[in-house]
């Protein structure tokens, strides 16, 4: 750094606060990761390196069960949310402005605005009525609930991509004898896929991470990984929780890097 001369971008103390901010963000995460490898049962006193907690998490049937359930829900919820979001994004970007557009937009984004606890309680009420009426207590409730709050997360990147696309390309395809379906399949879709993939990944991660809505909607014995972890809080915390967290953390880091790269792909 050149000391002489006036740095117009400098603001006194901002650099220090920023570094403090990054330290604040990462210290707990690093400690969490480090102690997942602790050979002792403490999450604060280091006793040596070991994989034991990863092994014990892997062999824990409840964890296995919750992991599979989390993945199944996240898969279906993100698949449903992404498909309907693609259609909704096409409707809101590829047809002229219409009455009810604002209302439709508000509805799609509702899960972003309404506090999760409010939605969770509302779903608890609705689904408890349906559960009593139909007797069905399967995973479908969780999948639909997750799909609903994943829709805006899938919708926004897809819509952004559609809006960034050159409309004359689709007109050129129509001009060259492509029917509306062929325009979508041969011109829109090939350019849209980074947006779709980004939206699907975002939806998948959001579903995988959900605690509150799952906690209220799940029937007995339907723990997902996050609700299982929340339940463990009442017991003694062992580094097994750290091990599970570290694995989930790894998935998140992978996803965010992939997402960043995807959104960099130019139209």
């Amino acid at each position: 750094m050149a000391k002489h001369g006036f740095d117009i971008k400098k603001q006194t103390g901002f650099g220090t606060i920023a570094i403090a901010c990054f330290i604040l963000l990462y210290t707990p995460i690093f400690l969490l990761i480090i102690y997942s490898f602790n050979s002792g049962t403490s999450i604060a006193a280091w006793e040596g390196f070991s994989w034991r907690w990863y092994v014990s998490a892997w062999e824990n049937e409840q964890v296995q069960d919750a992991t599979v359930r989390s993945l199944v829900i996240a898969f279906w919820a993100s698949a449903i949310a992404t498909s309907v979001a693609v259609m909704a994004a096409l409707a809101t970007t590829r047809t002229p402005k219409f009455k009810g557009q604002t209302a439709a937009f508000a509805m799609i984004n509702q899960p972003l605005m309404v506090p999760e606890i409010v939605t969770a309680v509302a779903l608890l009420i609705l689904f408890s009525v349906i559960k009593v009426a139909t007797g069905y207590t399967g995973l479908l409730y969780l999948i639909i609930a997750h799909a609903a709050f994943c829709i805006p997360f899938a919708y926004l990147p897809i819509r952004a991509r559609l809006q960034g696309m050159d409309l004359s390309l689709e007109q050129a395809a129509a001009d060259l004898y492509a029917s509306p379906f062929l325009v979508f399949r041969r011109v829109t879709l090939p350019q849209l896929w980074p947006g779709i993939l980004a939206g699907a990944m975002l939806a998948f991660v959001i579903s995988l991470d959900d605690v509150v809505i799952t906690e209220f909607v799940k029937s007995a014995g339907q723990d997902t990984l996050p609700t299982y972890m929340l339940g463990q809080l009442r017991r003694v915390i062992t580094p097994e929780i750290n091990a599970i967290s570290t694995v989930l953390l790894g998935i998140s880091v992978f996803m965010v890097v992939a997402f960043t790269l995807l959104s960099k792909i130019r139209n």
């Binding site: 259609m87 909704a88 799609i108 509702q110 899960p111 939605t119 609705l126 609903a148």
Partner: peptide, 17 residues
């Protein structure tokens, strides 16, 4: 095109409210 998204949202977001 909007219907599937709106149906899910009515069922699991606006309706329950």
């Amino acid at each position: 095109l909007l219907a599937p998204a709106l149906i899910i949202l009515v069922l699991a977001a606006s309706g329950p409210l």
